[in-house]
Design a protein around this nucleic acid. Structure first.
Length: 333
DNA sequence: AAGGCTGCCAACCGCATGTTA
DNA sequence: TTAACATGCGGTTGGCAGCCT
């Protein structure tokens, strides 16, 4: 049995909004607010619209200070960098761009920015676990079955693009990929590589970052993405803890993190982390890497500007905590 | 001129999560 | 504790406009 529909679709108008409907909705919300009940709102105003539709219309079009189109280079950089960093979390990306909606950014990304950045490059396909060579990539035609998700592939490609990568066949051995790799990154990669060579490695208890360090995890995610994407093709399945198990237990599916815990602690506690090539593009935004690279909780408040912000009652740290949880699940922490 | 193709974007859909009774 | 309901989110769709053949 499926979920009950949020409204009676038979008696609800769909499709484009008329100026009259816009005016009604806008006037009511500006005067009375939403009353924290979108479902009841259209009935109050006399609109034959679904509550969700009203909410969307308000958030994406009617609310004050919305910008449409005309994305600047700076905004392009932010979107691109955040997409590489956190993927298609449009609401979080929108939170960093005042006046922009997640829907707008999503559309912009899908229709223009992605093409602009990726061009007509072919997709690169990282070998399956059965492949003999551990870190090779090979060219495949678009549409062929990919082990990585499209999003992950896009992010990987974008990373390469941003690094002006000339040789796609070597991710970690080619210094062009990690021109300013810091010691921790090197050690993480070495650890994973050595793990790949030694299937008898023990699974060890892991380091669990504290919730207050959630934003640091965001810094850490891109490199972990790179590493895990590569490592996951080589690590035997038995060493990778299923998400559900990882959620309940306190260990990593791989032994990597604990072995460099001291360095990791230092790394995540150091706001001036250097060599995160993933974020180099931030430097171009306003010349200050740290201003974007490092988001204090109050600056990374997703309630500040995005579609979820305008009357949300959720806690400020909710999203960063969620990011932490996502990270923990993703990497089997 | 007309039909097809493509890009764009507003809006919808369904799922996940949060809230409340 | 749990079920029902509300909200938020990301993926997808459909219609329109402009371009191409």
């Amino acid at each position: 049995m499926g979920r009950a529909p949020c409204c009676d679709k038979e008696n609800v108008k769909r499709g484009p909004w008329s100026p009259e409907e816009d005016e009604k909705l806008k006037a009511y919300i500006e005067t009375f607010g939403t009353g924290n009940n979108w479902i009841a709102l259209p009935q109050k105003i006399g609109l034959k619209r679904c509550g969700k539709s009203c909410r969307l219309r308000w958030l994406n079009y009617l609310r004050p200070n919305i910008k449409h189109g005309g994305f600047s280079e700076e905004e392009d950089n932010i979107i691109c960098s955040l997409y590489i960093s956190i993927g298609s979390r449009w609401s979080i990306i929108a939170a960093q761009l005042p006046g922009r909606t997640d829907n707008d950014i999503k559309n912009y990304w899908n229709t223009k920015l992605k093409k602009k950045l990726l061009g007509k490059r072919k997709n690169y396909h990282i070998n399956s676990p059965s492949a003999s060579s551990s870190q090779d990539t090979k060219l495949v035609d678009a549409g062929e079955d990919n082990t990585l998700s499209n999003s992950a592939m896009e992010r990987l490609q974008l990373h390469m693009q941003l690094q002006n990568l000339q040789n796609p066949y070597s991710l970690f051995s080619n210094p062009a990929v990690w021109p300013k790799m810091n010691p921790l990154q090197e050690k993480m990669i070495q650890t994973l590589q050595s793990f790949n060579d030694n299937s008898n490695s023990l699974i060890q208890p892991t380091m669990i970052p504290q919730p207050g360090q959630a934003q640091n995890v965001q810094l850490f995610e891109p490199i972990m993405d790179q590493i895990m994407q590569t490592a996951s093709f080589n690590i035997p399945d038995s060493y990778v803890v299923p998400k559900s198990d990882a959620h309940q237990s306190n260990y990593l599916g791989v032994q990597s993190v604990s072995t460099f815990q001291p360095e990791l602690d230092e790394f995540i506690n150091n706001n001036n982390a250097v060599g995160m090539s993933e974020f180099d593009c931030f430097k171009e935004i306003d010349g200050s890497k740290d201003s974007i690279l490092w988001w204090p909780n109050d600056q990374f408040d997703t309630n500040s500007a995005s579609s979820s912000s305008w009357d949300s009652t959720s806690t400020p740290h909710h999203q960063s905590d969620q990011l932490y949880q996502d990270f923990a699940l993703r990497y089997n922490v």
